[in-house]
Design a protein around this nucleic acid. Structure first.
Lengths: 346, 346
DNA sequence: AATTTTTTGAAAAACGGTCTTCGTAAAGCC
DNA sequence: GGCTTTACGAAGACCGTTTTTCAAAAAATT
């Protein structure tokens, strides 16, 4: 037998049934004001009996707060952001807050975000991988309330971002340390701020080692924004690198996923990793550990937690109010794909 | 200069400024009733000028609908569900609906879901990978409204689920077709309904080929629920399989991620894939294409879309009302890891 | 017994919309 | 110039809470 259809009980139903006023029920539910033990019990019983749950919507309207934040990430496809979401979620759990997920469309990230925020009811925003401009920042704050940005710098607001240049430099230096001098780089579409920062780090490392950077050693895979960091992109870029200079002996890819694509391209061309070509990626997604791909780790989980904590403090106004910005330095993780002796842990 | 703090304009502000009544503003905004062209324009101008956005919360309260659905998935970690989310999202886009994401805790999936629904304001629920019982089903409908289940069968409600037995049989038969008879299987924790269905398919295939199933050819990796399908799980299970019977020449893993772990274990043991051991996974995650892992595909994206469409129909009551259940048959995808000639597409 | 304190009720405003009901004025039609 | 549309206002109920105010009843204290 299907359950009988029943109207959701309201605070009035509870009040009537318990023979008290709605004010008292509210007092009991929210533990505000004074209530005698026995009335509290009686009300609690009725609540239980009726299965009463305060309406979140009504509460939101009345209190002007939705207990919901928006989380924007570039797309669901990348394993890269999963850890971030987990970190966010873990901190939200204790805060009686949920999140609405928005996947930014690569082609119009700003438009899709604004559109999303426009429709939604949320108290704040956590946005990852969104290039921030001054005007967009204010737009967001107007639409979404307090905002914390992850992955790019924002002068006028809270942000956590990575030192992309140093990360790229670390990766390149690692390859140089293995004795390579013909080092290629796989990067992403031209209007990504990440692209330039990483190319910078790559070239800096080469120059410091007395190697002259060659433009034909840098390959862009797919130029569509949404595919820039993808496997396909890495695959095609690797093929291009081999065409441009078959003597390449090491490659730094801008994402692990790209590196996996590049690896496949090398396999198809009959070159082995790391013996013929050493390979290193970026992001340190979980799978990399199991395919032996060296990478640059960014500890997304931790950043997710800390960004969430910051946002919650903003929402509760339990904070100094000063803009918080942190530049996070990534870490090198050595595995077999780069041909170096692997430290104990794999 | 930071933007001056300003109260959000309400429908009254717009009405006052445009010299019309709130009813008219409402008519213009929602395109209901009759409105003259010039008033419509004037109101639109004021709305623009003031930056007025109807409050979602107020609308929700007044209309009794939140334009939000809950989506529950087992965890963020698995790449497996990304495609599902993308499918869901793509259909929700046109429906002016957002989703709240809930990651079920493996240890207490039901409790965590109920807890989540209890707090949230949503019109319906899409739940993936949740074993469904009759009582839970009603509980969910009471808490969340219309519910569509993905990945397990639900007699009293809408569901899409896979023919796990056939999938496992297809994988196993594929290995048999390659001439293998010593075929191992990697599975997951004991109380997963998937486990039994797949073991069934695996053993059926063996028996049909005249091979006697051996219990020591079935390995369970990690027994913690949250880790059952993980890389670690596959790694450990593979090691166990090799210990129990070193003559194993082919392995069917219950997830691609497990297979990747198993592959690593084989590498560590000095066995190559597919020459020494043929390998096939399950789920067909995107990366599999680029590491050449054979798999069983379930077309999550499509299911995500269709489940969402169904739920939207339920919400709009534009449907017959009859319980909809579909058993989806998975597909075999052959790549190099199973040692078979690979069809054109790779 | 007088006084203070605690607990509760009743009523209403507020949150920001939607929707309905009437009533009326302006425009369109023959 | 009478008749019908069409467009809109005014006012209020309603959605389910929270919160406040004021007063009264009950309990605890002296």
């Amino acid at each position: 037998m299907p359950p009988p259809f029943q109207q959701k009980p309201t605070i009035h139903d509870v009040a009537d049934r318990a023979g008290v006023s709605t004010a008292t029920v509210s007092r009991v539910v929210n533990e505000t004001g004074q209530t005698a033990d026995d009335t509290r019990e009686r009300v609690a019983e009725v609540i239980d009996e009726l299965g009463y749950r305060p309406s979140r919507t009504a509460k939101a309207l009345s209190q002007g707060t939705t207990r919901t934040i928006a989380v924007a990430v570039p797309t669901f496809t990348t394993p890269f952001h999963n850890e971030l979401l987990k970190g966010i979620r873990s901190r939200l759990k204790g805060a009686d807050t949920d999140f609405l997920l928005c996947d930014l469309e690569w082609e119009h990230p700003e438009a899709s975000l604004v559109d999303f925020l426009d429709r939604g009811a949320m108290d704040g925003l956590l946005a990852a991988g969104l290039p921030m401009t001054e005007s967009l920042g204010w737009e967001l704050q107007k639409l979404a309330g307090p905002t914390v940005l992850i992955g790019s710098r924002w002068a006028d607001g809270d942000s956590f971002y990575w030192d992309e240049t140093t990360g790229a430099r670390m990766a390149t230096e690692h390859l140089i340390d293995q004795g390579h001098s013909q080092i290629g780089m796989i990067t992403t579409h031209r209007d990504s701020p990440i692209r330039n920062a990483r190319i910078q780090g790559y070239e800096d490392a080469l120059r410091d080692a007395g190697i002259v950077p060659r433009p034909d050693r840098i390959a862009t895979g797919r130029t569509e924004k949404h595919a820039g960091f993808s496997e396909e992109s890495g695959y095609e870029a690797m093929k291009a690198l081999l065409r441009a200079g078959p003597d390449v002996t090491a490659v730094f890819a801008s994402s692990d996923v790209q590196a996996i694509g590049a690896w496949q391209a090398l396999r198809h061309e009959g070159r082995s990793v790391p013996d013929d070509v050493a390979l290193i990626g970026y992001d340190d997604i979980k799978i990399s550990r199991f395919i032996g791909l060296s990478s640059i780790a960014q500890n997304m989980h931790d950043i997710g937690e800390r960004a969430t904590d910051l946002l919650l403090r903003r929402l509760r106004r339990t904070d100094s109010g000063e803009v918080f910005s942190e530049l996070v330095t990534p870490e090198l993780v050595v595995r077999t794909s780069s041909g170096a002796p692997v430290p104990a842990k794999a």
